[in-house]
Design a binder for these strands. Structure first.
Lengths: 154, 154
DNA sequence: GTATTTCCCACTAATTCAGTTGGTATTTAG
DNA sequence: CTAAATACCAACTGAATTAGTGGGAAATAC
């Protein structure tokens, strides 16, 4: 498992796409502007996202990118895997010799943790993120009506 | 949030320490041998772990490292933060101007996700990992007696 | 046919990773 | 007291990754 700034850029860009792609495709130029990521770097990221069919490109004027599937069918793990290659970890080649056993045990423990992190991220979709934020915003708004006088909690 | 191979090395080394540190300190040379990590790189990692008081060094012959606290009081997030610096993300400085709002929204979404990942990793301790593995091993052993014939599930 | 956009590839500066080298400080074993 | 073992410290290094540049080619709307 690996979660780098590269993965963060990809998730951020996909979020932008999910939020702004309701009506018509979104150009990389717009995402670049919105998120402050260089156009060429976005191109690299989207090349990877496209091969995994997480996005769909439309060329020509008025073109841009759509999500490749429903936001609910795209998990955070999908996105990160697409751009970060997801190198599988040294599994000591199954049950083979691995310098004594102690090493193999910690490798197993790490592998377990790693797949747990993966499952966690695989359980969160783009759609979830967007909806969660809307819900929270609603709560905050409702709350701020009630407690508008002491909104200075800092 | 950031999870690199550096963090993986640190967690692996701490796991080794948790497993082998029951009676007496563990030397970096042993961990290096067990886990196949260079001694000097371990020194760098443990310098960071030491400043965060996750480990305690004992010099001289017969010396080595102890866990700085109980394995149950050390979370995976603690370890990764210690070696990976845990750069806080562009928060657009609270609610300030952030190129239009669309950008700030995705930043907020990312921040939420990021802290969710953090909380997830903060909820898993070294002790948890060790115990979980022991439990699973027990299950597997019991299971393998029952289903030993079809253990080839690929 | 031209402007807009994706798509593609080769190159690069900066950073991080992982390790090397060569020490110094401290403590134990003998 | 001496020598060995160990943590501790800092500068340097090759390799990989990150993030970005530059120069295009291909598709498509107008």
């Amino acid at each position: 498992m690996r979660l780098s700034t590269k993965g963060r850029y990809a998730v951020t860009a996909m979020l932008d796409l999910a939020l702004n792609g309701k009506n018509g495709p979104v150009t990389l130029a717009e995402i670049s502007e919105n998120q402050g990521i260089s156009l060429s770097y976005l191109e690299q990221l989207f090349a990877a996202l496209r091969t995994k069919e997480l996005v769909r490109g439309v060329r020509g004027p008025g073109g841009g990118y759509y999500l490749g599937k429903s936001a609910d069918d795209i998990s955070i793990a999908n996105i990160i895997c697409a751009v970060d290659e997801w190198v599988e970890f040294t599994r000591c080649g199954g049950r083979q010799n691995c310098s004594g056993g102690a090493r193999c045990l910690t490798h197993t423990l790490w592998d377990d943790l790693s797949s747990e992190i993966f499952n966690f991220l695989a359980g969160i979709s783009l759609g979830d993120l967007v909806r969660r934020n809307l819900n929270k915003k609603e709560e905050e708004d409702t709350l701020s009506v009630v407690t508008s006088s002491d909104s200075q909690a800092a």
